[in-house]
Design a protein around this nucleic acid. Sequence first.
DNA 1: TTGTAGGCCCTGAGCCGACAA
DNA 2: TTGTCGGCTCAGGGCCTACAA
Lengths: 723, 723
Amino acid sequence: MIGMIDLNTVEEEEEEDADAAGAFVGGGAGVCLELWHACAGPLISLPKKGSSIVYMPQGHLEHLAVPDRGDSIRPPSLQPHVLCRVLHVKLHADVGTDEVYAQLSLLAQEQEVEVEESGEGEAEEFSGDSRPSLMPHMFCKTLTASDTSTHGGFSVPRRAAEDCFPPLDYKQQRPSQELVAKDLHGTEWRFRHIYRGQPRRHLLTTGWSAFINKKKLVSGDAVLFLRGNNGDLRLGIRRASQFKSDIPYSAVCNQKMSSGTLAAVADAVATKNVFHIFYNPRASPSEFIIPHWKFAKSFSYSFSIGMRFKMRFESEDAAERRHTGLITGIGDMDPVRWPGSKWRCLLVRWDDDVDARRQNRVSPWEIEPTGSVSGSTGLSAPGSKRTKICLPSVNPNFPVPNGSGCPDLGESSRFHKVLQGQEIIGYTSRYDGKDVSRSQVPGIRNHHYPEMRRCTNDVNSDILSAAGGGSRVPVGNSEFAYKCTGFGESYRFHKVLQGQEIFPRNSPYQGASIDSRAENGGFAGYFEGMHTSSAGRRGTEPFQGYSGLVPASTSSVQVSSPSSVLMFQQTSQVPWTSLVYESNKRDKGEDGSYCGFSNLSKLSSGQEASLPCRPYYTGNELNQEHTEPTKYAHGCVIEPGSKDDHNIGRNDCRLFGFSLTDRIPVASEADETLPTSPTITNINFETSFPLPKTQIAQIPSNSMGSSCTKVSTLYAVCATAPF
Amino acid sequence: MIGMIDLNTVEEEEEEDADAAGAFVGGGAGVCLELWHACAGPLISLPKKGSSIVYMPQGHLEHLAVPDRGDSIRPPSLQPHVLCRVLHVKLHADVGTDEVYAQLSLLAQEQEVEVEESGEGEAEEFSGDSRPSLMPHMFCKTLTASDTSTHGGFSVPRRAAEDCFPPLDYKQQRPSQELVAKDLHGTEWRFRHIYRGQPRRHLLTTGWSAFINKKKLVSGDAVLFLRGNNGDLRLGIRRASQFKSDIPYSAVCNQKMSSGTLAAVADAVATKNVFHIFYNPRASPSEFIIPHWKFAKSFSYSFSIGMRFKMRFESEDAAERRHTGLITGIGDMDPVRWPGSKWRCLLVRWDDDVDARRQNRVSPWEIEPTGSVSGSTGLSAPGSKRTKICLPSVNPNFPVPNGSGCPDLGESSRFHKVLQGQEIIGYTSRYDGKDVSRSQVPGIRNHHYPEMRRCTNDVNSDILSAAGGGSRVPVGNSEFAYKCTGFGESYRFHKVLQGQEIFPRNSPYQGASIDSRAENGGFAGYFEGMHTSSAGRRGTEPFQGYSGLVPASTSSVQVSSPSSVLMFQQTSQVPWTSLVYESNKRDKGEDGSYCGFSNLSKLSSGQEASLPCRPYYTGNELNQEHTEPTKYAHGCVIEPGSKDDHNIGRNDCRLFGFSLTDRIPVASEADETLPTSPTITNINFETSFPLPKTQIAQIPSNSMGSSCTKVSTLYAVCATAPF
DNA sequence: TTGTAGGCCCTGAGCCGACAA
DNA sequence: TTGTCGGCTCAGGGCCTACAA
């Protein structure tokens, strides 16, 4: 135990935190929530406990990847879309392979379910989990041949070592120490960390090969080091390819996902019993569980043959890529067994079909129309451009120390996005606290108090004016929206990408962040000042400090060499899109037969939401390319010169590979102080998916707790224009 | 591939054989049936496909060894004793630990089930599996410190090497070859086999440490080498202690045996669906599945407080030991949740309670009363001593070459018993066929034809007279009885014991055996001439050759040093006990409430069995000590001087640890040619377990196929005296 | 006959700096 | 800054015989 961490750490704190989040491995040891998400990959999210989701048996079968034998015959009683409440989410890691997977406990819901309960439940759940669990320092490195060779050890990127490892005594000729890192199972791994060579470099030597061998890591796999706020080191694995050696991959997980699953589900649904779904986020991209609102939202699009669309993918290097295509057909994928199912009901042709693996069938909720079909610019609702403007809604990530405002909303600050190879560092807190900022603005350390005070000001008007005002208002608080949609399990979701390093060396918030953190005794729930975007400390004044916290210079962000790197990026939920709720009281007829989800028509509106609202998107997605949304979305621009469609640095979270950030419907009681867009019309013309009446993504108005009711109105616009 | 086996082997033959027996590992590779049983241990047996068993949920819970949480609450509909039909038996081996376990597919039976179906099914199943699969050569060695050290290799006992391994060219100074052995998963392991050192010895060097490491073998564990009849080498493991390392033991198996199992069983029983039971024969001695007849038989005993009994155990060295005790109480083990259950309903005190692990509660079918209570010598039925006399019913193991008689009965010849450290070699067939017998009787090679011809003679009268005639007739054909009881899955069951070596060097049958085998082109289903006892080639004339094949001298058997050794012992089924069936047509009243198995009263008699028969034991077990039953049971006495109660060499097979050999009720159509015992009375006086009327172990008369109908009557006596 | 120990060889794990990308 | 290479050391795998139980 040489050179142990010297901070005032609280042992087992993360364990408890994981417990509080309901994250366990099978054996009972706690799984580090952050580590799980880091290992799961950048685009994986999970539904939150208590949220409403739609379960797709077809997709489940695909995920199981079991041969379509007799036992996979559709149980007659099982519908293609099953509305469920998520009762529990458990995070697991395969004992043999460290592969992460999740167990969801679902309960089929009646159509008459009061959506309000979801919101209440959420508020309660968050309260038990509002304790900060910061892990501001992390890095992910793809192993080189040298790293995995028996010949040598592990070459640690310099800044990664400085950021995540306890400092070495560089006065010595060969400084070294012993590192202890826990993996997902809580197993401790010990490494000798030495700084040597000419030129000097950080190496892990003794103990490394044992780790490599035990984990059966090969070149191309990636390891993650993650320093918790209490100083604990965590160690994760993200394999390049699925682990398919002589040892059967994910024996336990596959075991649980074996045949007969669907029959069990059908029985549970029929008998109103809980059933359990195992999901391996890295095994297959099946998105067989999607948020209720997302499913409902897909009805708002009018898909038609010939329509162009775009869709996001996770590429092999864990970077997100976007592909476009053309809808070539619409119809049931399996009209015999699953008639009326929307699962992969769209037949598409990709513009770049170089990737043969890509499915030629997609589900409506996976794609976004780009609106180039039939020249119907009307698909683009008015004000679409303003949705971009909303993105500079940078709010500070500094938490209110005692969280008197909306403590249950304080979790969005953990909604991280960690890019592997894309280093986004708001403040460069070295492990020893030295060299905090290389080119720091002098005197910045004294700014945090005024800024925090400014957070309490109502700057809504500023925000709105900055955003261009008008009908569309930025849903600046991603966490709020996230929570309202019920997919808060991933509120601390990280996104770790490889290949690009973004390092804002002279962020004016660095000093402030550090100081506030120190004064809060490590409690601080803030993150780097960069890329705070819309998410952040959302409390009574969500956009608080917006005007004051916009970085003075966007050039502070640098894009450096690929591979290796660290730090979290604040994930911004719904950064550049706005939501509009539309009153939908008119009876649109009983044409819901196709969608197979007519039960939605029975959904009642929220108690406090006086009017039934329907999620509505302004159509900005239909005619914009989203090539550089972050330019507009974030207070600091990632890299002004980047013109590819990778959207690196775009804050995206997906539920089962599905984006949670694009547009999140948020219901509010009514528009009180905000400009509304009462003239928004239903864009669902030319619909291929007739919408049942009041088929909405119903978000309870009280989902954020009573004290936040007013806040919610800041982010959601509910147009009450009757039809 | 140095020195590969030179026999005319048929590749994959055993694989197919395993398939035919329904033995698979999870992955699909075939599990060698013999190897599975060898690894499972000496006292483990399994029910046969199609047989009737009684399933005990309580025992299952014990076997699961899950904490008694809420989910182990007895499902209301689940009875403590469930009569089931075994639909399938699958043999498995844990991928990680090689631990063997079995999967039984059970279907709860109605009381009205026709027992005849079982017999028919058996005949069919056997037909598909009547192909000989001989493995006459095998050895098991407990690993020494040197064997497991990284410093050296594996020291092979000399005769083990000569018997199981291909011969070396001893003319070379250092003969060596490469051995290839398959484990339970079909994985090939290659070893360098060298003969060197001063004095010379057989060693496995290269490749051995890899095996040790991969299998995580330690000193004290045992390895089994097993040479198939086609020359294939098989390699098994029997761990000294349960494999409990950092890697969870038997993850897959335990997974399948996890919580909620009982609820699933209850549901399956209620819905008349098949349910699956996983049984780890080495995990716990729970005997939660017992043969139907065994369960019923336990009612024939009259257990009372103060009664003495004996019970068999498997000791740590895999040797069988017998312990005696006193019944101190009778009553439900769990009167709240499982009232009326007979599971461990007897409270006992052991005479030698040095072993604290021993349960102080036993089930009635586990023990045998010794009749020393209340001086009731009446418990000993008349003719008890004659049961010993029946044991010399040695029949030859030489098969009829073309099996025209009863091919489906030809399997008993595979009912092996392999004693580890107890070497029983009828003919010492070296691998190269040389040095067949070291002290062979001259000219014996010419004896086999007359003997085989003699096998076709009906020597029943001889047998009976030799057995003393009278009311009790030896059930000489163990296989037949075994099959009739439906527990034929283990018909090739091996018993491997450690600690004693019995080597009949000069058996007069050696030459004959070898020759007949050679002339049959390897088909021969015979075994060594020693210890043929009652089991063997049972065809139309089960006791054929009895008079002519009794060894001239019993001194041919030697007991040598413990540890290491080989060869199969023919398992004798019911070697020294006789069965008497008693007509039980009288109505004994509806007092079956206690036993919880009153459905037995609805059992109808077999179609061809004209009269309901009830298994009945003459009570010889009640007053004899069984110390040296083989003296009487076998044509050749194991070791005349052995006086301990180990009963080494006693041919015993257990179902889930339960003896199948003691007494096996066999139903017959009627007694045709055999002397019967019409005056046998029901000894079930003083009964603590009132028997429902016609509570019998019903064995179908046609269980051995129509061609064997007459044969069956030779072994079973059905007294038809009405009450 | 076979378990164990010591001698010996040699592979390869693993640490190091040099060098170059 | 860090990936890879060659050099180096050394533990231990592994083969052998000697000796003794």
